[in-house]
Amino acid sequence: MNIAILGSGNAATHFGQAFQALGHRIVQIYSKTKANADALAFALHCPSTDQLSQLQRDADLYLIAVSDQAIPALAETMPQDINGIVVHCSGATDLNILERFKNAGVIYPPQSLSKNKTIDFSAIPFCVEGNNEGNTEILLQLARTFSTRSIYCDSKQRLAIHLSSVMVNNFSNILYQFAYELLEEHNISFDLVRPIILETAEKVQNHVPITVQTGPAIRGDEATQQKHLKFISNKPDLQQIYQLLTQQITKRK
């Protein structure tokens, strides 16, 4: 498959590398910043451009891999005389943002993508949607060359997956940061809690999360809860988070 990539950041980089590893041909990189387009194009051994008017028209797939905020404007200004399938890879963006195009779809990996960290796409269940049955099937077949766990889901389902991903990834990570800062304040290494982070993550691979919930809230240990709250009395934001999460755990006892 001949593929043009619009974007030059983390998602564009990982998708470009993964497509090439599977034998697909990257025919062009577009970025509004020429230097960024050139850098990724150099890595993927293909031409680059910073002009949408110069976008090649004969690719089989046009992957929009830019920030969610940038997708609408880019989709609106892309040439419309494209026969290939135009797709974005956003979890929170509806398919209808690409309604200008005859062939359109979404191929969304619910995964945090960092440019300098290798991603094993085979472990990610890609979420796919096309604007008709034929395009859905093409995109599903493509996604399943990455991962056999890839599935069809509509825009509403994909948004639910994206929101859930934010909760288990971004929200968890800021809690890790709160813990890191609290430990650092008391001259304790964050390394001491890394094992319990892994233990919790491993448990939920095979269980409904609430069934493996532990700690003072699920036990109804109010004395320990009050001790914790007193300990962080100088951190009102953290106190508020602690109380809210404790209430949610208690409700599910």
Rank of each mutant, 00 (worst) to 15 (best):
I3T: 13
I5N: 01
L6F: 08
L6V: 09
G9Q: 07
T13W: 04
F15Y: 15
F15T: 04
Q17G: 08
L22R: 15
G23N: 06
Q28N: 05
I29F: 07
I29D: 02
I29L: 07
T33H: 13
A35D: 11
A37F: 00
A37K: 01
A39D: 09
A39S: 12
L40D: 03
F42I: 06
H45P: 00
P47C: 11
T49A: 03
Q51F: 05
L52K: 10
L52F: 02
Q54I: 01
L55K: 04
R57Y: 07
D58C: 02
D58Q: 12
D60S: 13
Y62D: 02
I64W: 09
S67G: 08
S67P: 06
D68M: 01
D68L: 05
D68P: 00
I71H: 00
A75T: 12
P79E: 11
D81H: 14
I82L: 15
N83V: 08
N83E: 15
G84Y: 00
G84A: 07
I85C: 14
C89T: 15
C89N: 10
S90Q: 01
G91D: 11
A92S: 15
T93F: 06
D94L: 05
E99R: 13
E99A: 15
F101T: 06
N103E: 09
G105F: 04
I107D: 03
P109M: 09
P109W: 00
Q111G: 03
S112A: 12
S114Y: 12
T118C: 11
I119W: 05
I119N: 03
F121G: 02
F126Q: 01
C127A: 15
C127N: 13
V128S: 06
V128W: 01
V128F: 09
G130H: 02
E133Y: 06
N135V: 14
T136Q: 15
E137M: 10
L139R: 09
L140Y: 10
L142V: 10
T145P: 02
F146N: 00
S147D: 07
I151N: 01
Y152P: 00
D154E: 13
I161Y: 15
I161A: 10
L163M: 14
S164R: 12
V166R: 02
V168P: 01
V168I: 15
F171L: 15
F171W: 13
I174E: 10
Y176M: 04
A179T: 14
Y180F: 13
Y180A: 12
E181F: 03
E185A: 13
H186Y: 12
I188Q: 13
D191W: 04
D191V: 05
V193C: 09
R194W: 00
R194H: 03
I196A: 03
I197D: 06
L198M: 05
E199G: 10
T200R: 08
T200L: 11
A201D: 06
E202F: 04
K203I: 02
Q205H: 08
P209C: 08
I210N: 12
V212W: 01
A217W: 00
I218S: 08
R219V: 03
G220T: 06
G220V: 03
D221C: 03
D221Y: 01
T224R: 09
Q225D: 07
L229V: 07
L229F: 12
K230Y: 12
D237V: 11
Q239V: 08
Q239R: 13
Q239Y: 04
Q240C: 09
I241Y: 05
Q243L: 07
Q243H: 07
L244V: 05
L244H: 11
T246S: 15
Q247K: 13
I249D: 00
K251M: 13
K253D: 09
